[in-house]
């Protein structure tokens, strides 16, 4: 199975990203508004004001980058925490002896669609996630 496809097509991952996107976009809007304030300060030759705003801007920008990175890390952690037992459950139900996770890092160099259970697994994990 394609681990990246499974991760990206898992509904919970999409929903968590959508929630985080809203929060990060709100932070990003503050940055945009600060850019305008800096331009205004520069236009009115308020050098000290522009400098202070620029420092604040850089701090916030760094904070946004950290938040973005932490949020990605957390989503990754939460999603795999849920996917791992579901993959195991799926394997047991299908009486599989081994599930190989292709992740594009070279562990699986080629497979044809005959052995690819990704669509079936995506369907299974999403059905379980939706609580049906």
């Amino acid at each position: 199975m394609d681990a990246i496809k499974l991760f990206n097509q898992y509904n919970m991952k999409k929903e968590l990203e959508a929630k985080e996107k809203l929060r990060l976009e709100a932070m990003s809007k503050v940055l945009d508004s600060m850019t305008n304030q800096i331009k205004l300060a520069q236009a009115s030759k308020d050098e000290q004001g522009a400098k202070d705003l620029f420092n604040k801007f850089n701090l916030l920008k760094q904070q946004l980058r950290d938040e973005y990175s932490q949020s990605n890390q957390l989503i990754n952690q939460e999603v795999w925490k849920r996917l791992n037992p579901l993959i195991e459950e799926f394997g047991k139900k299908k009486k599989l002896h081994l599930i190989i996770g292709a992740n594009g890092m070279g562990s699986v160099l080629y497979n044809d669609e005959y052995y690819d259970l990704t669509p079936e697994l995506v369907n299974y994990v999403n059905k379980q996630y939706e609580g049906q």
Partner: peptide, 18 residues
Amino acid sequence: MQISYYDRLFHNGIIKAS
């Protein structure tokens, strides 16, 4: 009906039941 709980504390993501 579908109830969902976003577990922010133990970081288990969104828990749903239909």
